[in-house]
Design a binder for these strands. Sequence first.
DNA 1: GTACTGTATTAGGAGATGTAATACACCCAT
DNA 2: ATGGGTGTATTACATCTCCTAATACAGTAC
Lengths: 127, 127
Amino acid sequence: MFELDVQNGKPIYEQLMDKLKELMINEVLQEHNQLPSIRILAQELTINPNTIQKAYKQLESDGFIYTLPGKGNFVAPPKSLKNSLKEEKIRNELSRVLAEALYIGIDKHEIYRLIKEIGPLAKGGDS
Amino acid sequence: MFELDVQNGKPIYEQLMDKLKELMINEVLQEHNQLPSIRILAQELTINPNTIQKAYKQLESDGFIYTLPGKGNFVAPPKSLKNSLKEEKIRNELSRVLAEALYIGIDKHEIYRLIKEIGPLAKGGDS
DNA sequence: GTACTGTATTAGGAGATGTAATACACCCAT
DNA sequence: ATGGGTGTATTACATCTCCTAATACAGTAC
């Protein structure tokens, strides 16, 4: 499914969250799709089940997935993330990064181009 | 000068980096201004000099400040950050956060508004 | 019941973070 | 050259996070 880098400095469970979010954003994983079970994924990635659980639990509390005990973990509808605590965090992060980008001299128009480039990708295909 | 939160989960040296970058971005600290000395700042914030040093060293390697041994630390010209490794990192971070924002349903136009709101602030006044 | 799912707890090791105490080297004013 | 400021580097130690490991428990489906 994907690879993780143990040496990366960044915690494994965060790398896993990022990869999974990326798959959801690119709609490889879609609304209500089931994620790999904790034990299966732990086997495939050769890491401890607790680490997977930590990533899944965090993704759930962030609103990206929902958990049905005994059944599995599933992709949450993106719209359910609107008006959540997570939205506020993303807005703050966005402001911070935008300010930093503009400070070092990245042009507004380059950012506009980025948005147009990403925008369609988040909605439909990836071409 | 500012406050740090030891309980914040986020490392003190990172909080310090964020605060200092914020001051530079908002031009409270301007090009070639001298930063507080490591020892002075350690006294004021009641934290260890080594922690300050770590923040300063990281800011220097990121290109936000430059160090003159025996003299002090100074704010680097923002333009010197263009075409650096740091620019690449900021671009990647920006792409990631933008994709996440669009995914959860934040509208493009809200982001445009954010940019216009921040843009002038990074150039001139703060009103 | 069996075999999947997620959840929770306890224990331990490795590494990051912050503190502390020192020592060294550079710059500058006197 | 001396003194007092600056940054730099090293070593040691306590604490916390991250990750692993081994278990046990609980919900769901067949």
